[in-house]
Computed example of a mutant assay.
Amino acid sequence: MKSNRKILMTMSLILVILLAACGSSSNESNAALEDQSEENQSSQDTMDNSADEDSIDNNANTDNTDTDDNNANEKVDPSNNEPTKEEDLSANTTANLKEEYLQKLNDAKNEVEEMRKNPIDDTTIAMKKVEGDAYDIWDGLLNEIYKALEKQLPAEEMEQLRKEQREWIDNRDHTAKEASLKYEGGTMEQLEYVKVENDLTEERCFELVENYMK
């Protein structure tokens, strides 16, 4: 009987120890679970904060891009005083036209001088042929320049130039006639008349281009 009591007490003691051990293990498990939960929550908060920071950075970059686009799309104020492309083109065209005619005149001058130096022969007929060809050159250039000025000059200025040109023609012919009279009645009279006309026409061509062409 005493032996059974001892066994019963021993078993009861073992049971109490086991229950105590189980309770302790349960508390430790709960504590571990709580720690794990806190760590997970902390990690989630960190990730959320990082995502918020990335979102802020992206928004800032978007704002900067929008600002750059707006600046790029801003139109230049057309009210400035800088010349337009059309005005620049017109100015360049005019300058090129003037340079073109000056080059033509210089080429013609060299050509006529070469013709006078190298006639077919020394006869008056050969020299008249040279001056006749020179007249065609200078008279052709004079008419060409005059037509170019009609397109370029304002109406009032062109009207004034017409008057001057008529006076110049009268003066040229009169001067040529006066110069030819020293050979009046001779074979050189007509030759001198045309030569003086040519020289005066050459001068007038340069004058029109340099003083009137803009």
Rank of each mutant, 00 (worst) to 15 (best):
Asn81Ser: 12
Ala126His: 03
Asn198Leu: 02
Ser55Gln: 06
Leu105Trp: 04
Arg204Cys: 05
Gln36Lys: 09
Asp52Arg: 12
Ser29Leu: 13
Lys117Pro: 00
Asn30Pro: 00
Thr175Lys: 14
Leu18His: 00
Lys104Trp: 03
Ile56Ala: 11
Asp121Asn: 13
Leu15Cys: 10
Glu202Met: 14
Ala91Val: 07
Glu156Asp: 13
Thr123Ser: 15
Asn59Asp: 15
Lys129Trp: 04
Gln165Ser: 05
Glu157Val: 12
Met1Asp: 04
Met213Arg: 04
Met47Ser: 12
Glu150Trp: 03
Glu164Ile: 02
Gln41Thr: 09
Asn61Ala: 14
Trp168Met: 07
Leu33Ala: 13
Tyr135Ser: 12
Asn106Ser: 15
Ala60Arg: 08
Ala176Asp: 03
Thr46Met: 10
Glu86Val: 05
Val196Phe: 01
Phe206Pro: 00
Glu39Ala: 15
Asp48Tyr: 02
Arg172Asn: 09
Asp122Tyr: 14
Ser24Glu: 08
Val16Asp: 02
Lys147Asp: 15
Met11Lys: 14
Asn110Arg: 08
Glu189Leu: 08
Asn92Ile: 14
Asp63Ala: 15
Pro119Phe: 09
Asp52Ile: 08
Ser50Gly: 05
Glu114Phe: 04
Gly186Glu: 02
Trp168Cys: 07
Ala126Cys: 05
Glu197Cys: 05
Ala60Asn: 11
Leu102Ala: 01
Thr67Lys: 10
Asp170Phe: 02
Cys205Phe: 03
Met11Ala: 14
Thr62Trp: 00
Lys117Val: 01
Lys104Met: 08
Ser90Arg: 13
Glu113Leu: 12
Val130Gln: 00
Asp77Gln: 09
Met115Ser: 06
Gln190Glu: 13
Lys151Pro: 00
Asp63Ile: 10
Leu15Trp: 08
Ser79Asp: 09
Asn58Trp: 04
Leu149Trp: 04
Leu105Gly: 02
Glu99Met: 13
Thr201Glu: 05
Gly140Gln: 04
Gly185Ile: 03
Glu159Cys: 03
Met1Ala: 12
Leu102Arg: 01
Tyr183Val: 02
Met47Ile: 11
Ala176Phe: 02
Gly186Ser: 11
Pro83Gln: 06
Ile120Ala: 15
Glu203Trp: 01
Ala20Met: 11
Ile120Lys: 14
Asn4Ile: 14
